[in-house]
Write a protein that binds this DNA or RNA. Structure first.
Lengths: 91, 91, 91, 91
DNA sequence: TCGCCTGATAGTTGCC
DNA sequence: GGCAACTATCAGGCGA
């Protein structure tokens, strides 16, 4: 149990604090989101429906990305890689 | 179903987009946190222990806040509000 | 859709009923708790304060357990497992 | 702040402990329920669907009770109270 | 690497 | 009607 309070301890402390700081930021954002929902609600929009909308849009995005990946794989298989992609440069 | 594409629609769209933007930011932060854990791990720190440390620190904070709240509630119940608090001044 | 009303159906029905029975019991307990709060209130104790006390006690318990877990994890990480623990004996 | 550690303190302590005891029991039941779900799952039943079944059955029960209450109210309004009920005995 | 399982988060419900 | 507890869902980590 060397290094209690030593340089390793300092390093660990630093990691812990960085994470705590980031989690704080994350919480702030969550609060902001809640706030937007509240504002929307007081403008007459149903939060429940809004959540559904968000979920659907998210799924659509995921689906689209899936499609893109599929297309890319397919083109690659045909040796027709899309030049707009940015793959590993050829050594 | 008035207002399809009208001002209300614009407003809703705006709310949705603000939320989507915030959720993106939140995701970025989550990624950052994961990165810090990875960095700590490759420096020889056990992520499992780190998580427990974080949890304990969080609980300590929460407990302290809860204690403060209890004291305040108790004083209020006795009609002995703590003058160091800053409630709305009585008109 | 084989087995409609068959043995699988019987088994499912049994699971469902066991759960429903347990949920009933749970509800009974919740009612009991509410009753105790009511009784305490009519004895002059503030339920709000009681809830905070309960919360703090719970947090204290949780924190103590978490501390124990941390110590154990830490010792394990150092290859110094606590002999007072009772792991599977090494056959 | 009289009675610190006095009879009122004892009474409060008793209430707190009764509640803690009940909450423990409640937790035990919750664990049992989780166990049944697990068992059902390992028998090939989808917990998600089971939850839906439970929800529907619950709604049906609530609905039926609602119906019963409505019927009773209606009969009472007609002076035709259902003799199978057990209302306040007529003094 | 896959499946499990715990812990985190979002949604719902009930209390104040 | 707002707030807080509880529950259900989900994702990430862990072990086999």
């Amino acid at each position: 149990m060397a290094d209690v309070g030593g340089v390793a301890g300092e390093r660990l402390r630093s990691f812990i604090q960085r994470i705590e700081r980031l989690e704080e930021e994350k919480k702030t954002i969550s609060d902001d989101i809640r706030e937007v929902f509240a504002e929307a609600k007081s403008s007459g929009f149903d939060p429940k429906i809004m959540r559904q909308v968000l979920k659907i849009r998210k799924m659509e995005t995921a689906e689209r990305q899936e499609m893109d990946a599929l297309l890319e794989t397919y083109l690659a298989a045909l040796g027709m890689a899309d030049p707009t992609d940015d793959p590993e440069p050829p050594g």
